[in-house]
């Protein structure tokens, strides 16, 4: 069972695009994959995957109601299947009020049960829902969470439930290995809750060609504190197109989505994008990242062959086992 929270200290979009890309890569490895979108903001995983039709309807049943054990329907009715096969439990506006709703529940229940507020297992609710009540480990091979950015109840619930983190990091100007906030958070959680949190890997993302970026990337790759199986170049155009294609970077390249000006208007259409080697290389790295998480971190048994069915082009096959050694710098 693969479980990972894609956590990014600085927020930003890498977390969401990376969650989508890793999820689709895992699905392409024939792992039945579910993503949970806990981010209530606009521009989240739910909108990327074109899911969550009722996310703004306060009366609609949603994940928060289930986490708080006050469901308005079947849990499995929350799950939608995206075009690329990944299942998603979409975001809902109610996620933004999670803490206040939780507080109410705690007040009520601690009052009823004569327990103190401190005793209430406020970070364990999602764990309870996913594994105890729904037994999703029997249904899925992989579950990823795109958490909300702020360090509060929802994020803690996500980490408590999945226990393993994948951390995209942006090249920062100073080039310090800033995972300090994450370290502190993890340390506190481990002590308080008597759990062990694993860091699958750190993924430098949006690495440009500037010296500062390159140097920063080097620093990450040279550290022994955590694994950095791949870094992802600065692929703004590719990642931006994901929002138009409503899917992964794999989909963008395969369907050749492009945004361009037509008759004085910006439009996005498939079948227009040029096939660029550096973008194909990025897909390879994303696939490799998913492979690393699945095999090195979680011991899954996977044949890492990526088939790209690019519209109007011959298919490309990338076998990670074969080209283990061919390849070097940021393409």
């Amino acid at each position: 069972m693969i479980t990972a929270v894609v956590y990014s200290e600085s927020g930003g979009t890498y977390k969401t695009t990376m969650t989508a890309n890793v999820a689709v890569a895992l699905e392409r490895m024939e792992l039945n994959t579910l993503v949970l979108d806990l981010d209530p903001q606009e521009g989240n995983l739910t909108s990327l995957f074109d899911a969550g039709e009722h996310r703004s309807d306060p009366d609609a049943d949603n994940l928060v109601k289930h986490i708080l054990d006050m469901p308005d329907g079947e849990f499995h009715d929350l799950i939608e299947t995206t075009e690329e096969g990944v299942d998603i439990i979409p975001s809902h506006d109610m996620l933004g009020d999670f803490t206040s709703n939780l507080e109410q529940k705690i007040s009520y229940e601690t009052g009823m049960k004569n327990m103190s507020r401190e005793e209430y297992p406020r970070f364990e609710l999602l764990h309870e829902l996913l594994w105890k009540k729904q037994e999703l480990h029997k249904e899925y091979d992989a579950i990823l969470i795109d958490p909300n950015a702020r360090a509060e109840d929802l994020l803690y619930n996500a980490i408590f439930a999945l226990r393993t983190l994948v951390a995209p990091v942006k090249p920062a100007g100073k080039g310090n290995l800033s995972l300090e906030g994450l370290e502190e958070l993890v340390g506190n959680m481990e002590n308080q809750l008597d759990i062990e949190i694993g860091l699958s890997c750190v993924v430098p993302s949006g690495v440009g060609q500037t010296n500062a970026h390159q140097q920063y990337q080097q620093q990450f790759e040279n550290t022994e504190e955590f694994a950095t199986p791949v870094s992802i170049g600065n692929r703004e155009s590719l990642m931006d197109a994901m929002w138009e294609a409503r899917g992964s970077a794999f989909k963008v390249v395969e369907e050749r989505w492009k945004t361009f000006e037509k008759d004085g208007q910006m439009v996005s259409e498939p079948g227009q994008r040029r096939v660029r080697d550096r973008e194909v290389e990025t897909l390879r790295r994303l696939y490799e990242l998913a492979w690393f998480i699945a095999t090195t971190t979680f011991d899954a048994d996977i044949d890492p062959v990526l088939e790209l069915d690019i519209q109007g082009h011959t298919n490309r096959t990338i076998d990670l086992k074969e080209d283990d050694k061919t390849e070097a710098t940021t393409a």
Binding site: H137, R163, T164, L165, I195, E196, G198
Partner: peptide
Amino acid sequence: SNFKSGSGNLDFGGS
């Protein structure tokens, strides 16, 4: 480091 490199300890309630 507080991190264990790799996966954390997750258990599915004695499955």
